[in-house]
């Protein structure tokens, strides 16, 4: 099993609904976020191109955060999801410094927090909160090993990119272009 997510940059309008849904679903403390929207403007007027990306932890297959964690708190879980065990985390910040996507932060309670792909929902057969609320249905989630999952189907059909693949992280967040 290999969980992954695809975000259609042609459909995303940057409404930030995914960000709010995540904050609500996961009780993210005020002032923090586990996902965010990046808006890229390319070119000069009048030749402009706009891209919106809903970004979060890339649940990398070769995660620098798992590698550098001194206690094993950061680990690979079912389906390759990268999770943090709260009572193993010492809050040293090594994983935060190691993440090229800046996807992690220190929870006010001291441990490191990040996107979990809403594993608690996925286990119940639901979609992650961000995917479920998206008003333009621009996000796809599922198992890459299953050729019939939403994400497998869409990345077979469309062109996509990943973020900084040259960092060697093998990210599992696909941006459809």
């Amino acid at each position: 099993m290999r969980y992954a997510m695809a975000v259609d940059t042609k459909k995303c309008v940057g409404c930030s609904d995914c960000v709010v849904a995540c904050q609500t679903e996961n009780d993210v403390p005020i002032g923090y976020c586990r996902d965010w929207i990046v808006e890229v403007t390319d070119g000069t007027y009048p030749q402009l191109e706009l891209e919106h990306r809903s970004e979060r932890c890339n649940h990398c297959e070769n995660s620098p955060c798992v590698r550098c964690c001194p206690t094993g708190a950061s680990h690979y879980s079912d389906g390759g999801i990268v999770l943090v065990t709260k009572n193993k985390c010492i809050g040293c910040g090594a994983c935060i410094a190691s993440c090229p996507y800046d996807a992690r932060f220190t929870h006010p309670k001291g441990y490191v927090d990040k996107c979990t792909f809403c594993i608690h929902r996925v286990k119940k057969g639901q979609e992650p909160a961000c995917v479920a609320v998206c008003p333009t249905k621009c996000m796809y989630f599922g198992d890459l090993d299953d050729p019939n999952s939403d994400v497998s189907k869409v990345i077979k059909k469309r062109k996509y990119k990943t973020l900084i693949p040259e960092a060697g992280t093998q990210p599992q967040l696909y941006f459809l272009i």
Partner: peptide, 23 residues
């Protein structure tokens, strides 16, 4: 020209606007 902005207002302490996890 290329401009990249986080438009959802991410301001995670010690991460944004610039990493400063180790003081």
């Amino acid at each position: 020209m290329r401009e990249e902005l986080i438009v959802s207002g991410r301001m995670n302490p010690h991460i944004d606007p610039q990493l400063e996890i180790w003081e």
